[in-house]
């Protein structure tokens, strides 16, 4: 019994990481209806940038965030203004195919720069530290990941609904023309949204890199996890995304418990079941 409680707790904590993968995806879709196929590869890029930073400056991965977060945000802004803004429009093909091309470029650039060898970020003692309560041992790093995920979602929620920046995001999302007339430059607003999304991605990448080893090819899988969390949670709802991540994480750990080969499959099946019974996700945004 306690064993299964442990599995569910682990899955929930893993869900935090998936929610972090998903948050950027969800944010971008919410503001500009863009689905970024390269999102997973950008997460991996963040992990590699973290790796280079820790090695060059000889610092802890968390400290590396001071470098990686602004770097990723800058990359996001430049990418959006330089390339992605030109793809936005009524046709869904250009953004899809351009981000797909970007994904292949990123993967191969990482392969060229860092080789295919698996890498890992060295988090030190925190990786093995654990807390135990009532016969249940919980890793400090997974717990921290989850707490960070909750904090990030709360922070994004606050930015979205309580700040002038978030007001701009929502206005542009509602009606680009009228937002422009109010003096908002949508190209800039979209750039800021991508910058914010990739700043979150930076955190996701660093936490991923401390938790497991990574190589240039794993981006696609991370994109899929994030995407599944978004759809399970319901499009447009940030807290729903967290719930979606948790459901996915729990499904995976339960699957893994039954048979290690079933971990990923169980997650996909949970996603397909939700798609079959609640196509709009569990917590779709209610328009007011």
């Amino acid at each position: 019994m306690i064993e299964w409680v442990g599995v569910i707790v682990q899955g929930t904590l893993l869900g935090g990481l998936y929610a972090l993968f998903a948050a950027g995806l969800s944010l971008i879709f919410g503001v500009m209806r863009l689905v970024n196929i390269a999102h997973g590869d950008l997460i991996v890029l963040a992990a590699y940038l973290g790796l280079s930073t820790t090695m060059m400056l000889d610092v802890h991965p968390f400290v590396a965030l001071i470098v990686v977060m602004p770097l990723m945000a800058g990359i996001g802004y430049a990418l959006q203004r330089g390339v992605l803004n030109q793809t936005l429009g009524p046709d869904i093909l250009p953004p899809l195919l351009v981000t797909f091309g970007l994904s292949v470029i990123l993967q191969n650039a990482l392969l060229e720069g860092y080789t295919a060898d698996p890498q890992k970020l060295n988090g030190g003692a925190i990786e093995t530290a654990s807390l135990s309560a009532g016969g249940l041992a919980v890793g400090v790093l997974p717990l921290l990941t989850f707490v960070v995920a909750v904090a990030m979602i709360a922070c994004l929620q606050w930015i979205f609904y309580k700040t002038s920046l978030g007001r701009g995001f929502r206005a542009v999302s509602d009606n680009q023309d009228i937002a422009q007339i109010m003096g908002l430059n949508k190209a800039h607003v979209f750039g800021l949204a991508m910058a914010l999304a990739l700043a979150v991605t930076a955190i996701a990448g660093i936490l991923l890199g401390m938790r497991t080893s990574f190589d240039p090819a794993i981006g696609g899988g991370r994109l899929i996890f994030g995407f599944e969390a978004v759809i399970i949670g319901g499009l447009g709802s940030l807290w729903g995304t967290l719930a979606g991540g948790v459901i996915l994480g729990v499904a995976q750990t339960i699957g893994a418990k039954i048979d290690p080969g079933w971990q990923l499959l169980a997650g996909h099946i949970a996603f397909l079941v939700v798609l079959a019974v609640r196509p709009n996700g569990l917590f779709p945004r209610v328009e007011h």
Binding site: V83, L97, F100, Q107, N108, E112
Partner: peptide, 20 residues
């Protein structure tokens, strides 16, 4: 190898943007 794939990705992006 990898350079070839990057070139391919780049060409596809440029085509999509400039000559859809």
């Amino acid at each position: 190898g990898t350079i070839y794939l990057m070139v391919l990705g780049l060409v596809a992006i440029v085509v999509m943007l400039k000559a859809p």
